[in-house]
């Protein structure tokens, strides 16, 4: 059982959280976005082994936030609210 840190509620069990995707995956708008670019947004991932930066949602409070952690050792480095992280798509 990992412990994640919700920027709003504090440290909670991993089972309260849901993975929301890699952070910084900017959505291209428009019907004329090139197919490759759209596929890149929709499907392609960095999926790094080691340091990751991801969007998570704390299901209990419903807030999305950005978490930095290690995908091998599972150390959690930081949690930042979406506003603070400047993440937008």
């Amino acid at each position: 059982m990992q412990l994640f840190h919700c920027p709003f509620c504090g440290t909670r069990d991993e089972t309260e959280f849901h993975f929301g995707g890699e952070a910084g995956n900017i959505r291209p708008d428009g019907a004329d976005v090139p197919a490759d670019r759209w596929a890149n947004y929709l499907y392609m991932r960095d999926n790094p082994k080691g340091a990751v930066r991801e969007v998570w949602v704390h299901m209990n409070c419903g807030e999305f936030f950005v978490m930095e952690r290690d995908s091998v050792g599972h150390e959690v480095v930081s949690s930042t609210s979406l506003d603070g992280a400047g993440h937008a798509r």
């Binding site: 993975f19 991801e54 599972h74």
Partner: peptide, 13 residues
Amino acid sequence: DRVPSYGQRGNLP
């Protein structure tokens, strides 16, 4: 598992 990972180990939940 619910958390993306490269850690080849089990967990409790």
